[in-house]
Write a protein that binds this DNA or RNA. Structure first.
Length: 498
RNA sequence: CGGGGCGUAGCGUAGCCCGGUAGCGCGCCUGCUUCGGGAGCAGGAGGUCGCUGGUUCAAAUCCAGUCGCCCCGACCA
């Protein structure tokens, strides 16, 4: 029926469409079949299913800790924003008005002023900050909120771009430009640490060009990751908003010297899009691969038996392992998340395929022969490596293997990214050929002219993903602009993007 | 908004040209046998054929309209 294209081959064929055959179809099939999400009755919206939401919850938990550790507090601002608020900052309204959903009726009556469903919350938040801040002593104000937002996109894709999505948006107010700048950079660093440390998804950080920056920001910074089709995914952004919103919403304070000044703001956000990034960074032709730190289940135990007698023995042993892991404190308070797949009427092989599709990092096969030897067979999802492990040291063994998987997944993703990155001085013809073909990240010189940026975009669909931070720049800096050949003022990272 | 594809059981589909008992595979339920890489047999449940109208003795099938979804392009996290 309606899902025929994407769910084709799903019911009759057990295998997924391969990444090489059709990356896009592969992505949709993985998301649907691993039950991360499903389409909703409303166009462009999605339902996040328990498997997907479990990953998001772990992302949230970790990020929330990181925000708290950097001094932020959570708050919640309303979904509805007076339409006039959106109009108070010129660039901002231009950026968001086209994709705003507007509520015109309530309680059966036409509203006096339409309400915008937040596409982002700068306007409502800074209008409230204005009420709360009087003195420099009230600053910095460091707030985060977890929320849903709505942007009426023309084309949507599960997790990557949906009409409604979940995210966090940090909003801060500071006394000086430099302090705001420091905050914007700090949170970009937090994002990078999280993406590399937890999603095992390496990112390039850097500054957005004027063409790509947030509507209303002074400067925008982003984390750019490379997906397996060699396209870039903007996985997180952080903005130095300058005084633009402070001026629009009269967010001012009295300084130490007694003068009245506008505050300096930042905002920064990451969304459920990261789940899509996880899929496209780590998934393979068998399905999803979830990095252990984000996996709601880290280890699944699959019991193997013939007779009822064997069944009860093996299940007893499996439950004993679960019990011992609940006691085992070798990982501090963070216990190993283990699940016993005791479903009947399913052969072990069928269970293996299913857990592989869902990307659970480790599988412990447990049969009568294993029990006789006090062992289990441990299988890594990422490498599919299979080895016997002793049940007497199972906690240590699992914990160590999980942390190895986490580390090696990042290393593998990093290798893949570097293998598809070009830093040599590249001719424009070669660049165009690359963008039409295999794609990838290209580091090249840029004269700084918006015209060159636009021409390249029209020509090749590639855009400047960011002006990379120093550590990502090439050892021998490019000297000429990729497009016009004039002297380069800055090194740019070019790629086709999601 | 342009181009393409498609709406028949939970999923995938056949049937539509040429109108006449709605079929198949997967999944689901029950039972028995199975179980170290996607089990077998037997029995069973499950359908407003997207919706509305028209033609006809009779519509999944023909005609008109309408709604929706997916994919590919122009905007965006």
């Amino acid at each position: 029926m309606s899902l025929s294209r994407t769910t084709a081959r799903m019911a009759d064929d057990k295998k997924l469409t391969t990444r090489a055959a059709d990356f896009s179809a592969w992505y949709n099939e993985v998301v649907l079949r691993s039950e991360l999400a499903d389409y909703s009755p409303v166009r462009g919206c999605m339902v996040i299913r328990p498997n997907g939401y479990g990953i998001w919850e772990r992302m949230q938990r970790r990020l929330d800790d990181m925000f708290k550790a950097t001094g932020h507090q959570n708050a919640y601002f309303p979904l509805f924003i007076p339409e006039s608020f959106l109009h108070k900052e010129a660039e901002h309204v231009e950026g968001f008005a086209p994709e705003a959903a507007v509520v015109t009726h309530g309680g059966g009556k036409l509203l006096e002023e339409p309400l915008v469903v937040r596409p982002t919350s700068e306007t409502i938040i800074y209008s409230m900050f204005a009420k709360w801040v009087q003195s420099y002593r009230d600053l910095p104000l460091l707030i985060n909120q977890w929320a849903n937002v709505v942007r009426w996109e023309m084309r949507t894709r599960l997790f990557l771009r949906t009409t409604e999505f979940l995210w966090q948006e940090g909003h801060t107010a500071h006394t000086t430009h430099d302090e705001a700048e420091e905050e914007a950079r700090r949170m970009l660093g937090v994002y990078r640490d999280f993406m590399e440390g937890h999603i095992a998804m390496p990112v390039i950080t850097g500054q957005k060009t004027d063409a790509e920056k947030f509507a209303g920001a002074l400067r925008t910074y982003s984390c750019e990751a490379m997906m397996q089709d060699n396209r870039a995914l903007q996985a997180g952004t952080s903005h130095n908003l300058g005084q633009n919103f402070a001026k629009a919403f009269e967010l001012s304070f009295q300084s130490e010297s007694g003068s009245t000044e506008f505050a300096w703001n930042t905002s920064w956000g990451v969304s459920t899009r990261m789940v899509g990034g996880l899929v496209m960074t780590h998934g393979d032709d068998l399905g999803l691969r979830v990095p252990p730190l984000l996996a709601p289940i880290e280890v699944v135990i699959v019991p193997i038996y013939r007779s009822d007698e064997e069944r009860s023995k093996v299940l007893e042993a499996a439950n004993a392992i679960v019990g011992s892991l609940a006691e085992w404190a070798g990982r501090g308070t963070e216990r190993i998340r283990v699940h016993v797949d005791a479903r009947e009427g399913m052969k072990p092989g069928a269970k293996y395929y299913e857990w592989e599709l869902r990307g659970i990092p480790l599988r412990l096969e447990l049969g009568p022969r294993d029990l006789a030897a006090n062992q289990g067979v441990l299988v890594r999802r990422d490498t599919r490596e299979k080895r016997p492990v002793s049940l007497s040291t199972i906690g240590e063994d699992l914990a160590e293997t999980l942390s190895t998987i986490q580390r090696e997944m990042l290393a593998a993703a990093l290798d893949r990214r570097e293998a598809h990155s070009v830093r040599d001085h590249i001719t424009y013809d070669r660049f165009r050929e690359l963008m039409e073909g295999e794609g990838g990240f290209v580091y090249a010189g840029w004269c700084g002219a918006g015209a060159c940026e636009t021409e390249i975009k029209n020509d090749t669909k590639a855009t400047i993903r960011c002006l990379p931070d120093e550590e990502f720049r090439s050892a021998d800096a490019p000297t000429t602009c990729l497009k016009c050949g004039r002297p380069s003022t800055v090194e740019a990272l070019w790629a086709k993007a999601y």
